[in-house]
Amino acid sequence: MTTPTRIARRHPDDLIIGLVSVSDRAATGVYQDQGLPALREWLGTALVSPWQAVDRLIPDEPARISETLIELVDIRGCDLVLTTGGTGPARRDVTPEATLAVGTKEMPGFGEQMRQISLRFVPTAILSRQVAVIRETPSHAALIVNLPGQPKSIRETLEGLKGDDGTVIAPGIFAAIPYCIDLIGGPYAETRPEIIDAFRPKSARRTPQS
């Protein structure tokens, strides 16, 4: 077996993203995973700056989830890890616990905002237990965010909700992710404002090149 190595950036602003789908049935081939394709499609639409992604499809096993997150951050060098699935109240839904186990800082605002967005559609959004953490090593740090399992919910929580006139009704969580990555020493990620307008304080914005 080949030992995983650190992913090389092709550009200083290259964002390295780990994508993890947590599902017993998809991992064993009972049905086709939809989470990873949905994440790749959305990122391809939303990001302007360069990015690379590495995928993992794994079962709902706490140790396996934690090991995968550690591998993606510590060994592969991901700046951002997005997980999908395993965040409900069922006994096999253990993604939040496995994520908290590897984090060095909890970032509760992400889970709070995701539930606020989902509550606009279904009252059962209060059963969702998504969390987000920072994982820090001596030389690297990454943001890890749990997302819902359904492609529609993934898009809504990342992108937020807009009215017919384009007015933002509920900001998507990805609006805060590029600046968070700045603060932990990662690359400068830029988005397409018509999809998701990444927010940065004026002092943190790059001056446009002439």
Results as ranks from 00 to 15, higher is better:
102 V>Y: 10
79 D>L: 07
85 G>F: 09
93 D>S: 06
87 T>M: 07
87 T>W: 08
104 T>F: 13
115 R>F: 14
96 P>E: 07
115 R>D: 06
88 G>V: 13
95 T>L: 11
70 I>H: 05
107 M>F: 14
93 D>M: 04
75 I>G: 01
67 E>Y: 01
108 P>Y: 11
88 G>Y: 15
72 L>H: 01
80 L>A: 07
112 E>S: 11
106 E>K: 11
87 T>G: 02
87 T>Y: 05
74 D>A: 13
74 D>I: 01
83 T>L: 05
96 P>N: 03
74 D>C: 08
78 C>P: 09
116 Q>W: 03
107 M>K: 10
83 T>F: 01
103 G>P: 10
85 G>W: 11
108 P>F: 13
102 V>M: 06
111 G>H: 13
113 Q>E: 08
66 S>R: 07
91 R>I: 12
112 E>K: 13
77 G>M: 09
119 L>W: 02
115 R>K: 15
110 F>S: 00
118 S>R: 08
117 I>C: 07
87 T>K: 08
104 T>M: 09
71 E>A: 03
91 R>E: 05
108 P>D: 10
106 E>T: 15
76 R>E: 08
81 V>S: 03
86 G>T: 01
77 G>S: 10
112 E>Q: 15
69 L>E: 05
70 I>G: 00
113 Q>A: 04
119 L>E: 05
108 P>Q: 13
68 T>C: 12
82 L>T: 00
85 G>D: 06
78 C>G: 06
70 I>N: 00
67 E>K: 09
71 E>V: 00
97 E>L: 03
88 G>N: 15
111 G>C: 13
87 T>P: 07
91 R>K: 08
82 L>P: 02
75 I>M: 04
110 F>H: 00
79 D>C: 11
78 C>Q: 03
90 A>T: 15
79 D>A: 14
113 Q>F: 05
109 G>S: 09
66 S>T: 14
97 E>W: 00
88 G>W: 14
81 V>W: 02
100 L>W: 10
77 G>W: 09
102 V>S: 05
106 E>F: 03
91 R>H: 14
100 L>N: 06
112 E>C: 06
95 T>G: 12
86 G>P: 02
101 A>D: 07
68 T>I: 02
92 R>S: 08
103 G>S: 11
87 T>I: 11
85 G>A: 12
101 A>V: 02
78 C>A: 15
79 D>I: 14
118 S>T: 09
117 I>P: 13
75 I>E: 13
